[in-house]
Amino acid sequence: MKLFGTVKSFDTIKGHGEIKPEVGSDIIPFEKSAIGWEKDRLPTVGQRLSYETGTNNNAPCALNLQTV
């Protein structure tokens, strides 16, 4: 199921970021490897994305990020 949110932060050096979901209040982390578009275009703070949820090391994370 696709969910929607905005990029709260993205560390270009570490390749990790966080999404603020449109529904719910828990921030969800993501890794650069979850980006579903050209890897040379990095996510920017405030950018709206669709994503799916999964787990990484038994913790929730965002997967299959797409621009909206």
Rank of each mutant, 00 (worst) to 15 (best):
E31N: 08
G15C: 04
N64W: 02
G24V: 15
K2D: 11
G54L: 05
V45Q: 14
K14P: 01
V23S: 11
G54A: 05
G5A: 04
K8S: 08
D26T: 14
W37Y: 04
I19V: 06
D11R: 08
R48N: 12
T55I: 10
P29N: 00
K39L: 11
K14D: 03
P21W: 14
V7H: 05
G46K: 02
N56A: 13
D11M: 09
G54V: 01
K39A: 12
I13R: 12
L42P: 04
P43E: 04
E31S: 00
P21C: 07
T12N: 08
E52L: 10
I35M: 14
E52Y: 09
A34Q: 08
T53P: 00
S25R: 13
N56K: 13
E38H: 06
W37A: 00
H16Y: 12
G24E: 13
S25H: 15
F10M: 09
G15T: 05
N57H: 13
E31F: 08
D26Y: 13
K8Q: 12
P21G: 07
K20Q: 06
T44I: 06
P21Q: 07
H16T: 02
G24N: 13
I13W: 09
G15Y: 01
T53W: 10
M1D: 15
Q66C: 01
E18P: 04
N58E: 15
G24K: 14
V23N: 14
P21V: 11
T67D: 09
Q47A: 11
C61G: 09
N64Q: 08
G54Y: 07
T55F: 15
L63W: 08
N64Y: 05
R41P: 03
G46Q: 06
P29V: 04
L42E: 10
S9C: 02
T12M: 10
Q47D: 10
G5R: 03
G5C: 04
K32Y: 01
F30W: 03
I19L: 08
C61E: 11
N58V: 09
N56T: 10
G36Y: 01
F30Y: 08
E38V: 05
A62L: 00
D11Y: 06
K2G: 00
E31P: 00
T6A: 07
I27W: 07
R48T: 15
P43L: 04
L3S: 14
F4W: 02
S9K: 13
I27E: 03
M1L: 13
E18C: 07
S50M: 00
L42G: 06
V7C: 05
L65K: 03
G24M: 15
A59C: 12
G24P: 11
F10N: 04
I27R: 05
D40G: 10
Q47Y: 06
K39Y: 06
G5D: 00
T67G: 01
I27P: 03
P43R: 02
V45G: 06
M1C: 12
C61M: 10
K20A: 06
G15E: 01
A34M: 07
D11S: 09
E31V: 00
E31M: 08
D11G: 01
I19T: 01
